[in-house]
Structure formats: structure tokens, C-alpha cells
Design a protein around this nucleic acid. Structure first.
Length: 566
RNA sequence: GCGCCCUUAGCUCAGCAGGAUAGAGCAACAGUUUCCUAAACUGUAGGUCAGAGGUUCGAAUCCUCUAGGGCGCGCCA
């Protein structure tokens, strides 16, 4: 009977009285959370029962309200066609606070975790290009999914599948041979390489010969040409240094950095296998796998014998399955590549690999600029590093003004600034496209990361002031309406953690944290924590302690720090 | 042309295993600091849920169509 979820309590109370008509599952499905406090804590609509009972739903609600009872429920009330239940606030809050403070940061963790291995392919920036806003999404969503996987009892494997192979690098080498100079690249690697890349695309519009040249260089690169390889390696090393700066700012690390080039020596085998299985066909000089009547084929080898994205992804998938024996493999890649992944999964299936069902493309919406996709080729990029620095500077300005005597001000400014950017990216539904808006991203008020961090910091201050941490033996529960809203939200945390991972949606957590923060701030604004008699104070402090546990843990799952002071 | 996605308040978005009066934030306006951090709180104002049908006791939510926007669709990734 301990620690039941609210819906379980309701099912428990109702089951005996509607047993012949509805199953447990059906009751669970019907149960809902009322939107308005006057409708209680749990609601059960009686419309469906009306048919079988041949009574009005109002009548049924009334009758049920008279017979239902449950040790956790204060009262049942019929309100029109609804049966509303009011929980025993004191009892529930007592139990919940005890549970959260006992479990601490394990609250919400899956206890029946099976340790399933989940490979997550995310971030994957392209070398020789700036780490743009576009990659931010994959990076923060993927990182959060890894954290959520772990929280849900799985074992994540975080892979950074760098875009470090392909025709584009042949083109870059060609561009460098034409217009580049060593000193300039050394001085300012990424912007210089980007400039070369952009110039190449502009020039090749008038001079198609250039593209052919670029493809030639890629063929050399894939063939092991020393000059091509050393240039490529140089570009890659410079890029990795730049990326590392960004990952450090974001506080994100990987288990493996295995770019596309890692599969260079594994592709021949894949092509061979495809051929042996009779899947490879000649088409217009290239080699493809045909997929279906009205579907475009999957291109495996170009006319000149070099490989493509799809080839490398097939090799990567097979390698990963062999290496990790994963239960799930997630690709956190923009929605514009949906067709590509459909093709990859389909080809794997045709090769006889039924584990292709364990692979999922987790797409997300684009970051748009003026309603259009941002394009690297045209040089329209916004640098992530600059955005992060902007945010950090702004956080610092704020703190100089509000809390200048704060120690480690630099660190906290970083946590808040970066937190704002990450939260802004994660708070909206994954799939929606977002218009790039620096001003929005640097907002620290309202529905933002700093708002959540601030809520936590205020609670922390009170706890420090009260010098009460830990022993909550004297907790007896709370029943005022403000704390009740907080308690109800705290109770939901484990459910949200599960839902967020099931849906691959970090925004579920972000939205939850906003709701919790709002409820806490309302509480804080209306109730004086450090006033009242000792017992009352203990209860309020214990609640705040629970709040900080959940806020910190929730932020952590998004990859955001929770400073104690700000 | 085909496929996928999107359209809710002036702006950014919640709500969508159908349910009781469609919610936040920003912006606007009006308040709150002898009081635990005003990065906060309280209140006012703001909506034919793109449009039309359908299923249902009940639709922002499910189905169909229309309009508008976005993204893909053989040698880029």
C-alpha cells in the first residue's frame, strides 16, 4: 500500500465497484487529473458506464461516491458526470517527502532496470566546418537521451559520429590547393577552411570542372594518397580542437568518437556482402540497392567507385551491432535525413538483419533563419561558441548587479549562461522547427533554464539558513493548497522520467521542471518557510529539500548544472 | 509531381493514448521589496484552437479533404 501512484490508488478504490463492467486497464485509461483544484486530485468520468448501467452518468457518479472508499482518499465527491477523489494531503505528502529524501538523487530512477545497452549516435559535427547552432540540437538532445536512458536503467553508449569523410573533403582539399595557404589555416583554422569551402561552391557554379576535381581528390583520399591524407588529417585535428572547446563549455563527453572515416576499412566488406546477397545493381554507372517500385534506390557506390554516406552508415550499423549487441540504437539526426535512415534500415533488413528493428531515427526540427534552413555552403552560419559566450557574459552582468559578492562568480555565470542555451533548445517539442532568435535564447526570465536554476538556488539558501539537511524523521506532512500543488508535481517525477525516455523527448522533463518551478515559486511567494512553530517548519523544510532534489536531478537529466547560489 | 512534418492569444509555445470553464511565458497595463535572492510573486487584458466535413454522449486532440508554410526525393552529408 506504500508509495502508490495516484492513478493506482484510484483504480484500487474503484475496481471492486465496477468490476463486472470495466477491467483494471480500462479504469486506468479513463482516470484523469482534473484541471481545476475544486475537482479534486483524481477524476473518473462515468459516461462509459452509462451505457451498460442504463443510468445517467450523473447518477452513477453519485452512487459511486457513496460506496467508494480508500485509506489514502479523504472523500469522494460526485460532480455532474464525474466522480472526483480528494486525497489525504497530510498522509500522502508525508510519505512522498520521506520517499524523495530517502532515495535522494535516485528518486525517479528505474528500479527494475535491465541494463539494456542503448547506442546513441549524436552531435556528429562535420569537420572543417564551424560548430553551428544546427549541431547544438543533436548534441543536447542526444546527451539528454543518454542521461535519460541511464536513469531508466539502461546502459548508454554515446557515440560522436563525426562527419569526417566524404566528397566534401575532396572538395576542400581541391579548394585548399587552389587558394589556401598554410599560415592562414594555422592562424585561424575553421573560419579559413569554411571560407575555402564556401568559395569552392561559389566558383564551381561557374566552373563545373572544379567539382570533378574535388571528387578526384576524394577518390585519392579513399585510395590512400599520402598528400590527400595528410591534408585531411590536418584539417581534422584542427577541427577537433575547436569542437573540444565547445563540448567542454557544454559539459558533454562521449564514450567513442568514431567518425565516418573509422569505417573506411570496413566498407569493402559491406559492398561485398551486398553483392553476394544479390542486392547490388548497376544503375547509370553507379551501384545501388533497389528498394521498391515507388522508392528511390539506396546509392552505395558512385560511378568512380568511391563510397557514399549510406555505405558508411551501413558499415557503422553492422559494426555497432557486433561490438555492442545493443538493445536499441538511436540516431539523433535532423528530420531532413529521414529518407536516408529509412533506406538504411530497409537495406539492413534486406541483408537479413532483423535487428534493424532495434534502430530508430530520432529526428528533430530544423533551426531556421528567416523561415529557411541555414546553409553552410552559402556561409550562413551562427557559431555556437559565440552564442554560448554571449549567454555567459550576460549571466555575468546579471550577477554583478544582483549578487556581486558571490564566490566562484565565473563558474556560476557559465552554468547559468550555458544552462539558458541548453534549456531553450530542449524545452520545445523535438520535432518542431525553431526560428533562430538570439534574443529569445538569452532570456533569463519566465520559461527559461535560469528560472529553474533560480528556483533551486532560493530553496538552497533557505535550507542552508535553516541548517537542516538530512534527518527528516519528524515529518508529519502538509495540507495547505500551495504545498499540495508542489507535492502532486513531485509525485509525478518518476512517471515523467519514464515518459521522456519512451518518447525520446527531453522536453517532457524541461516542461515538467517549469511547472514544478512555478508551483514552488507560488508556494515561496505565499508561505513563509522560516516562520511558524518548529514542527511546521520541519515539514516545510523537508518539502523544500525534496524540491531541490528533484530540480537538481531534472536539470541534470537535461545536461544543465544547478548552482546552489546565483 | 511524390513522400514526411508543421499551422492554438500580438510573439514563442503547452495541451493531442477524446472528456468538466483551451493554459504558460514574452510583450502591454496595474500592483508587491521594513519580509527566506524582485532572474520572483499577485492581478487585468488578450483565442471562430488555419478552414470544411466526418466518427462520438463528447473533438484543439482521431479520420478525410482544402489552404498556407517547411523539409526531403541517384552519384553531398
Amino acid at each position: 500500500m506504500n508509495n502508490m501512484r495516484f492513478d493506482e490508488i484510484a483504480v484500487d478504490a474503484l475496481e471492486a465497484h465496477v468490476k463486472n463492467v470495466l477491467t483494471k486497464e480500462e479504469i486506468t485509461r479513463l482516470i484523469e487529473t482534473p484541471k481545476h483544484a475544486e475537482h479534486g486530485d483524481i477524476a473518473f468520468p462515468c459516461f462509459q458506464l452509462a451505457k451498460t448501467y442504463r443510468k445517467s452518468p450523473q447518477q452513477i457518479a453519485k452512487e459511486l461516491s457513496e460506496v467508494c472508499e480508500h485509506p489514502f482518499i479523504e472523500k469522494f465527491e460526485a460532480n455532474g458526470p464525474y466522480l472526483n477523489a480528494f486525497l489525504k494531503r497530510k498522509l500522502i505528502s508525508k510519505q512522498l517527502i520521506e520517499k524523495v529524501t530517502q532515495l535522494s538523487d535516485h528518486y525517479g530512477s528505474a528500479i527494475d532496470g535491465i541494463g539494456a545497452r542503448v547506442v546513441i549516435d549524436f552531435s556528429s559535427p562535420n569537420i572543417a566546418k564551424p560548430f553551428s547552432m544546427g549541431h547544438l540540437r543533436s548534441t543536447v538532445i542526444g546527451n539528454s537521451l543518454a542521461l535519460l536512458a541511464e536513469k531508466n536503467g539502461c546502459e548508454p553508449v554515446k557515440i560522436n559520429h563525426l562527419g569526417d569523410w566524404g566528397t566534401q573533403f575532396g572538395k576542400l582539399i581541391a579548394a585548399y590547393k587552389h587558394w589556401g595557404n598554410e599560415a592562414e589555416v594555422k592562424e585561424n583554422p575553421i573560419p579559413t577552411l569554411l571560407k575555402l569551402y564556401v568559395k569552392f561552391h561559389k566558383e564551381s557554379e561557374e566552373n563545373p570542372q572544379l567539382s570533378i576535381e574535388g571528387r578526384g581528390w576524394f577518390k585519392k583520399l579513399e585510395g590512400g594518397d599520402l598528400e590527400a591524407e595528410s591534408l585531411w588529417k590536418w584539417f581534422k585535428d584542427e577541427s577537433l580542437k575547436e569542437f573540444e572547446k565547445v563540448y567542454q563549455m557544454l559539459g558533454i563527453s562521449f564514450d567513442k568518437v568514431q567518425g565516418e572515416s573509422f569505417y573506411n576499412d570496413k566498407m569493402e566488406e559491406v559492398v561485398k556482402e551486398l553483392s553476394e546477397k544479390g542486392l547490388l545493381h548497376e544503375s547509370e554507372g553507379a551501384r545501388v540497392v533497389n528498394l521498391g517500385e515507388d522508392q528511390p534506390p539506396c546509392l552505395i557506390e558512385k560511378t568512380d567507385g568511391t563510397t557514399l554516406y549510406a555505405t558508411r552508415d551501413l558499415a557503422a550499423a553492422i559494426y555497432r551491432y557486433k561490438t555492442y549487441d545493443f538493445q536499441q540504437c538511436l540516431y539523433v539526426v535532423g528530420g531532413e535525413q529521414q529518407l536516408h535512415f529509412e533506406q538504411i534500415f530497409q537495406v539492413l533488413g534486406m541483408m537479413g538483419y532483423d535487428w534493424n528493428k532495434k534502430m530508430t531515427h530520432v529526428p528533430f526540427g530544423l533551426i531556421l533563419k528567416d523561415g529557411k534552413k541555414m546553409s553552410t555552403r552559402k556561409g550562413k552560419v551562427v557559431l555556437l561558441e559565440e552564442v554560448l559566450q554571449n549567454a555567459i557574459d550576460k549571466a555575468k552582468d546579471n550577477m554583478m548587479e544582483k549578487n556581486p559578492e558571490l564566490k566562484n562568480l565565473e563558474d556560476v555565470a557559465k552554468q547559468v549562461g550555458v544552462g539558458a542555451v541548453i534549456f531553450h533548445d530542449l524545452k520545445n517539442e523535438r520535432l518542431g522547427s525553431v526560428e533562430f532568435d538570439l534574443e529569445q535564447m538569452l532570456k533569463f526570465e519566465g520559461d527559461t533554464g535560469p528560472y529553474v536554476q533560480y528556483t533551486n538556488a532560493r530553496c538552497q539558501t533557505i535550507l542552508t539558513k535553516a541548517e537542516r539537511k538530512g534527518h527528516m524523521d519528524k515529518v508529519s506532512g502538509l495540507e495547505d493548497p500551495y504545498s499540495w500543488e508542489v507535492v502532486k508535481l513531485l509525485e509525478r517525477f518518476p512517471t515523467e522520467v519514464k515518459r521522456a525516455f519512451d518518447l525520446y523527448e527531453p522536453s517532457v522533463i524541461a516542461k515538467y521542471l517549469l511547472k514544478l518551478s512555478q508551483a514552488v515559486n507560488t508556494y515561496y511567494g505565499n508561505v513563509k518557510i522560516l516562520q511558524g512553530d518548529a514542527g511546521e517548519k520541519d515539514n516545510k523544510l523537508a518539502l523544500l529539500k525534496s524540491v531541490t532534489i528533484v530540480l537538481q536531478e531534472g536539470l541534470r537529466l537535461l545536461g544543465i548544472k544547478a548552482p546552489k547560489k546565483m
